[in-house]
Amino acid sequence: MNETESVARLREALGAMAGTVRTSPDAYERALLDWRRRERRRRLTGLAVAAVLLAAADGVGLWALNRSAPAAPVVFDAPAPAVAPSGAAPSGTAPSGAAPTGTAPSAVSPPGAP
C-alpha cells in the first residue's frame, strides 16, 4: 500500500466517521443560554470589582481626612492670603507692575481679618 492509497482510505474513513455524528436539535438554545449566562457573570464580576475599588478608595480618603489635625491643611498647603487693610497696598507685594508672590491676585480678605 502506497501513501496515495493510504490518503484515499483516510479521507474515506474520516468522511464515514464524520457521517455518524449528529448534533442534538437544542444545541443552539443551550449554547445561547450558556454564553449569555457567562457574559452576565463577567459583567457582574466587573461591576463588583469596580464597586469594591471605589469603596476602598473612599475609605482611604476618609481615613486620611479623619486622622489629620484640624488646623493642618490636608489638600492645599499654600499659606493663607495676606490681609490687606482697606485703602492700603497689601504688604509683601512687589512694586507696581510685578505680580505678587505667594498670593493669589484676586484674593480679597474680609474686613476686620487679622
Partner: peptide, 26 residues
Amino acid sequence: MTQHPAPVPAAPPDVGTPAPDAGTPS
C-alpha cells in the same frame, strides 16, 4: 451529543456556504 447510523459519508463542509434561512437556529 446523539450519534445515529448514517450510511452516507459526510463531505468536508464548505466554509463559505451561506446560512439557510428556515429551520436554522437563528
